[in-house]
Structure formats: structure tokens, C-alpha cells
Computed example of a mutant assay.
Amino acid sequence: MFERMILMIFSLLGILNGAFLSVIFRRKRFYFYMAGSWLLSFLSAGYFLWYARGYDGLGLWSLWLGYMACGIMVAEIVSLPCLFFLSLLSISKKLRKGSRVLSLAAICAAAVIGIYGSVDGNNREQVEHLDVYVEGLPPTFEGYKAAQMTDTHIGPYFRYTDLSGEIDRARREGAQVLFFTGDLIDDIRHMPDAGRTLTEEFYGFPDGIIYVWGNHEYYRGKDYIEEELLKTPVKMLVNEHTAITRNGASLYVAGVDYPWARGEAMKKEMDDMTDEAFRGIPKGAPVVLLAHHSAFLDEGFKKGAAITLTGHTHGTQFGLFGRPIITPFTYTRGLYSDGRNMGYVSRGDASWFPFRFSCPRELVIITFHRK
């Protein structure tokens, strides 16, 4: 169903872009433009879908073709409003020549943005350092470091063989615990490999690895992923909490599941999940809340969590000057605060679609301080 929808969407985009070009260039045989643009768009989307299934065992050439395909898909999206606007301008004879020049420039710019964003988006990563000042933090936790990973989406663009290096990077930054906030894997054929890597890397962190569910675990087969994770020492939190202890003092970590309700029902579902996760935590104790959906930042603020760590949005993967342009999320990327407590939405360690523009991948390192 998903694959058919992708092919239909990009087929339509190709046809529309071809139609607008035929209007701009005043070609009677408009169907050649439409057919050519449709074929390019259809083949790009088709390769993207095929590569996601058959990338195992293929050479580096296949990855670069994947980048090209993703770049063309992005170019089709970016070109559509530009060509539509220019097709309207071309109705005027005085503006026709200029609209033709601009249309070619728009197509070239869209292709450059798409291909550059696909290559750069999958290869460049930043380490974001957060200093969190916590009321009531025990002295033994001053300077304590944690890492957050999220949205690796193990598959064609972030291989299971990349997981070890990413976790090693967190350890080299001095993290003593690794928080993983969901969407570990899409290609569950490699779940046993991912599980073995998590087991091998677990003991590199004094306080281990703590995990909460994302939505893609449900999409790809939560029961099987859970079965494999239970073979590892990774601590899974499903509307519950655990404590990290130092010299008899504790830093609490609460974790919630992914909410599936919508509207007011979603708020109720998140309230219930958070209440259950916080049940039994002493009042005033320092708490880190882990969630996949960024809407849980409001829950963390209400509960007084020192920081709420989430992912899910990928930062929208597109923006300008480091900020998203259009977003369906209240909390999209970066640091938020209610004036007392903090929340952070990670851009993610990877993605199932490699394109990123002004929104690089990230590994988050949190350092706790006493307020």
C-alpha cells in the first residue's frame, strides 16, 4: 500500500511538472513533456523503493544511485510550485522568455538542492552538547553525562554495521548512560545483528542503555523487535521508570510508550502514560523523561521533569538557517523550556529517507549540573 502510494504521488508530480513545462515552452506535443517527466519521476521513486528492499550485498554504486533517486524525488517536489507560478507568468508574451529562463534555473536549483541534500544529509552529523541545571540534583551527579540517540531507522541509509560506530561516538564523548528514544530499525531482517551490537556496546556505559518505543517499531513488527531486545541487557521502559544510583543517591529516568490516539484523546492517553511512568518517584526527585513523540514535552513540563528527551520529527529534515520552514509539530527541533524545566527534540541520528537541508543528523550529549 505504501509503495503504491509513493509511486502514484511521484507519477502525478512528474505529469504535472511536465504539463507546466509544456505550457511555459508552448509545445503542441505537450504529452512528450508529460511522459518524459513522468518517466523520470516514476523511475526515481521505483529505484528508491527497490533499493530499500534489495540493498544488501550491492556495491557503493547502488547507494549513490539511491542518493540520485532521492535527489530527483525532492527536485520534483521543489519544482512543482515554481513551475506552476512560471506557467502562469508565461501567459504574458512579455514575460514568456523570462519565465523560460527562470524555469530552467528552477529545475537546476531543485536538482542541486535534492542531490546535495541527499548526500550531505546522510553523511554529515553534529554532536550537540546540552548543559542541564537541575534543582535537587545530588552532588554525586554533578557533571554526569548522558547521550541520546534516536531515529536510526536501520536500513539502507543507516546500516546495522553503522550502529556500533555511532554508539562508540557517544562513549568517546564521555557518556555514562545511553538513552535511545525509539525508531531503532526499519529493516527487521537485521534485528538480530542490531541486538548483538547493543549487547556488545551495553557494557561500555556504566549505567547501560535505556530504551523507549517509537512508532516505527509498531510499523515493522513490535513483537519481534521486543523479542530480540529481550535477549539483550538493554532496559526497556514502557510507562515505567528506573533509577540510576550513585553513592545511595538517585537520578530517575521515566519512559513512555508511543501514543496512537488523536486530538483530545491523545492528550488523555499521554497523561495516563506519564502518570503511570512517574508513579512511585519521590516528590521533588530529579527526573529525566524519555519519549519518542515530541508532544510529550508538555507532559514533562507539567510533571517537573528536569529534561524531556524526544525525537520522531527528524527536525522536518528541511529548513533554512537551521530552522524549520513548515512543521506540523508544536515542538520540532532543538531546546525548549517552560521557564523552569527543559525539553529537547533531537533531529535524529539518521532517517529512512536520506535528504536533509539545513537540518543535519545529530548525536546529543547531556551534562547534568546542580542548580
Results as ranks from 00 to 15, higher is better:
Y31G: 00
I15K: 03
R26N: 13
L40T: 09
A35E: 05
G46A: 10
K28C: 03
G46R: 05
G14S: 12
I15N: 04
R29H: 12
R27V: 12
L40V: 15
S37F: 04
S41M: 08
L21D: 00
A35Y: 03
G14A: 12
S37E: 06
L40C: 12
L43H: 00
L12W: 11
M34P: 07
V23H: 05
L43P: 01
L43M: 10
S44A: 15
I15H: 02
S44M: 13
F10Q: 05
L16N: 04
F32K: 10
G18W: 01
S41R: 06
R26G: 13
L16S: 09
L16D: 04
Y33Q: 07
I24S: 02
I15C: 09
Y33A: 11
M34R: 05
S44H: 13
Y33K: 06
F10Y: 15
A35D: 06
L16I: 12
R26F: 09
L13N: 03
M34T: 13
S37V: 07
F32S: 08
R26V: 07
K28T: 09
F25I: 05
N17V: 03
I9N: 05
S11R: 10
F42D: 01
S22L: 01
F10L: 10
I15G: 04
Y33V: 07
L13K: 03
I24D: 00
V23S: 06
N17Y: 02
G36H: 08
G18K: 02
F42V: 05
S41V: 08
Y33G: 09
W38M: 15
Y31W: 13
R26I: 05
K28E: 10
L16W: 04
K28D: 09
F25Q: 03
M34F: 06
W38S: 11
Y31E: 05
L21T: 03
L21P: 01
Y33W: 15
V23M: 10
R26S: 11
W38L: 15
L39T: 14
Y31I: 06
N17D: 11
M8N: 13
I15D: 03
F30D: 02
R26E: 14
F10A: 02
M34G: 05
L39H: 07
I9E: 06
A19Q: 06
F30W: 15
A35F: 07
V23Q: 09
L43C: 07
L13G: 01
I9S: 09
